[in-house]
Every structure is written in C-alpha cells, then in structure tokens.
Amino acid sequence: MVTLKTPISKSDHVRGPMTAAITLVEYGDYQCPHCGMAHPIVNQVQAHFRDSLRFVFRHFPLAEVHPIAGIAAESAEFAGAAGLFWEMHDALFENQSILSVPTIFMIAEKLRLPEIELRDALATGRYRNKVRGDFMGGVRSGVNGTPAFFINGVRHDGAYDFASLVSAIQLRITADSHV
C-alpha cells in the first residue's frame, strides 16, 4: 500500500471543508492530457460527495516533456497568492488544448491579475520552489506519473473514471471506519 508522505498543510490548495471525512489529493500537470481528462471527473466526484470531501491539488509537472507545465503551475501559484488558485486551476485545464504562455496571460487578464507582476514572478521563479516542493513530495510518496490520486492518504491505483473513483472512495471510507 503506497501512502502519502507529505501531510496536508497550510501551503496546500484545498477545496472543500477542512472537516470533510474524505481527502482526495491529486498530483497533476496542467499540460498532461490524462489530467485534462480527469479534471471534469474530479469536479463531478466533488459535487457527488458535497461537503464530505475536500480536494487538494499538488503540482507534478514533467517539464521536459510538457514545456508549459512548469509555467502553468507557477501561474496557478501566483493566482493562489491573490486568492484565485482554483479559478486559475480550472481555466488552465479548460483551455488545455490551447495552453501556451499567451493563453496563460489571457486567463490572468480575465481574472484581473496584474500582468507585469505575473511576468516578474515567472521570470524570477518566485513560485518555482513551491512547485518543486510539491513535485519532490510526490516523488517521495511514490508518484510515478500523472494524474496520481490519494484517497485519505492511500494511493488509488485503479482507473479514474467517475464510477471507479466514487467506489474507491466509498471503499476507503468503509475501511477507515473499521480501524
């Protein structure tokens, strides 16, 4: 059983109540097509479980094969500093097919994020350590590709269509309640 080595902390991006019984962690890459496919499914899963699930997204960009992935992750962090992480996160995945530096700046403009400051943050790598920290935490937790899901700290090795994720989460809740 592969388990999550990095506990959820204040530096994480969390969607859903802190008291939720289920914590779903995804290690993802904004330029990875599989993560793009998983994105609407994760949203459906969250809608299905409502307040009993909190979703945590951590960066796992494979920058050598996905040249925009690192910049996209850093831009999401930049948006996060302005309280708009999830808005940027959703927009990056929704525009994955046209993901590029101009697309990222277009999204930032729509979110009314300051263009010059974003340019500066990317140029100086202000969020590079945060993204790398997510990545290395994932590596140490046995993440070997994206998307990688952890349900209450245990890696989900199965498929990640809606039905598979929902049933895996239900099984995990049952298993955890017997501990």
């Binding site: 494979l62 050598e64 094969v65 990545f135 290395m136 590596v139 070997n144 590709g145």
Partner: peptide, 13 residues
Amino acid sequence: GDQVALYNELLTE
C-alpha cells in the same frame, strides 16, 4: 516513457 520522463526530471536530485 513515463518512467524515464520521471527520472529525467530528477537528475539534479
């Protein structure tokens, strides 16, 4: 492909 891509990101480590 996934495996070597991962190692490729870890060369500095």
